[in-house]
Simulated assay, not measured.
Amino acid sequence: MARFHVPTIDISAWVGPGSPEARAAVVAAVDHACRTVGFMQIVGHGIPDAVIEDLKAGLDEFFALPLETKKRYVRPAGENRGYSPPKSESLSYSLGVDPVTRMNDFFEAFNVGTSWAEYPGTTATAHDYAANTWPAESTTFEPAVSAYYAEARRVAHALTRVFADALRVPGDFFDALTDHSIDVLRMNNYALPPGAIELGAELTGMGEHTDFGLVTVLWADRVAGLQVLGQDGSWNDVSPAQGALLVNLGDVAARLTNDKWMSTLHRVKPPVIDGTIERRRSAAFFHDGNADAVIAPLPHFVSPGSPALYDPVTVREHITAKLAGSRAGRKNVSAVREAARVTASLG
């Protein structure tokens, strides 16, 4: 088995003008990464440094608020918006895997997303595309997050055009699956005040999980913690290169390709140094697909020798089952293939 490696790919030929040869090279590199590791680092994405610096300042201002203030912005789990306090989730349950202790992921998070009102003329409803709540106590959070959200969304759309070429489907193939996509930006904070949590063997930064949708675009501090499962069953540390974004596939991509592309398991381990947790922030943009889109393996990935591994399912049904696991503590019994991989890695 080759050494685990997350490749760095310059996608500038697809972000701006690019020659056919340059674009073809990006497609080949992305396809190889999707088939072998399911993760890549991308540069040439075009997000200005100032946008990322403003995002970091906005995160710092919000997460520095008192816990009781932040809890005012907790929303019902089904809405997937607002604040999630520490130890209110257990992402391994989204795969049907029992965590060591219930709801033991210690990160705190804040979610925003695209609301139904932004998709006029589609089937989007407030049930699947809730409106956002913005913290009144922060003056920088909303504008900074909104600016980064728009940039991350642009990058995700560029990646789906690359995916279409790599999967040998028409260039507008993903338009029908994502023209009212469930897009969510989840901002995570892994540094908590002293005494807020009890350090111990059961503590998990973020449990083993796959992402739910089509593709995830991640900005993160260059701090240890993220680990990715290799094909040999080993967990491998991954940290973004300077100026790079981490990109990984989600379950929708794996289902479309009948597992030829990998929705790779990953987790975040708490970077505990001398009994305290080192600061780590991240912002994950999830481009999940339309709630009512039916996802099934593409015909050219199915054959008598490679039968369909997944039954058709809507994006809504799939995400609902996984969110019920991570936030409501109801084990997701449909994620049989993913759960087996987690169990093997922990054996």
Rank of each mutant, 00 (worst) to 15 (best):
H5G: 06
A24D: 01
C34P: 09
R35I: 05
R35V: 06
F39R: 01
I42L: 12
G44L: 00
G46D: 00
I47T: 14
P48I: 03
D49A: 14
A50T: 14
I52H: 06
D54I: 12
D54S: 15
L55D: 04
K56M: 14
E61S: 06
A64R: 10
L65P: 03
T69I: 15
T69G: 09
R72V: 12
G78I: 08
G78L: 06
N80T: 12
G82I: 04
S84H: 03
S84K: 06
P86F: 03
K87M: 10
L95R: 10
G96S: 10
D98I: 10
D105F: 07
F106R: 14
F107W: 11
N111W: 02
T114D: 13
T125A: 13
D128P: 10
A130C: 11
A131R: 13
F141H: 07
F141W: 08
Y148H: 02
A150R: 08
A152F: 01
V155I: 04
H157F: 07
R161W: 00
D165T: 00
G171A: 00
D175T: 10
S181I: 11
S181T: 15
L185K: 02
M187E: 03
L192G: 06
P194Y: 05
A196P: 07
I197H: 03
L199P: 09
H209A: 12
L218A: 05
W219E: 04
A220P: 06
V228P: 03
W235Y: 10
N236F: 05
S239I: 15
A241D: 14
A241M: 14
Q242S: 13
T257G: 02
W261K: 01
T264N: 09
H266G: 11
V272I: 12
G275T: 12
E278W: 06
S282A: 05
A284M: 05
F285M: 09
N290A: 13
A291N: 07
A293W: 07
A296F: 00
P299N: 10
F301E: 06
V302T: 11
P304G: 01
P304D: 08
L309H: 05
Y310K: 07
V313M: 11
E317W: 06
I319P: 02
K322S: 14
A324Y: 09
A328P: 10
G329E: 05
V336T: 13
V336P: 05
E338C: 10
A340W: 03
V342K: 11
S345P: 11
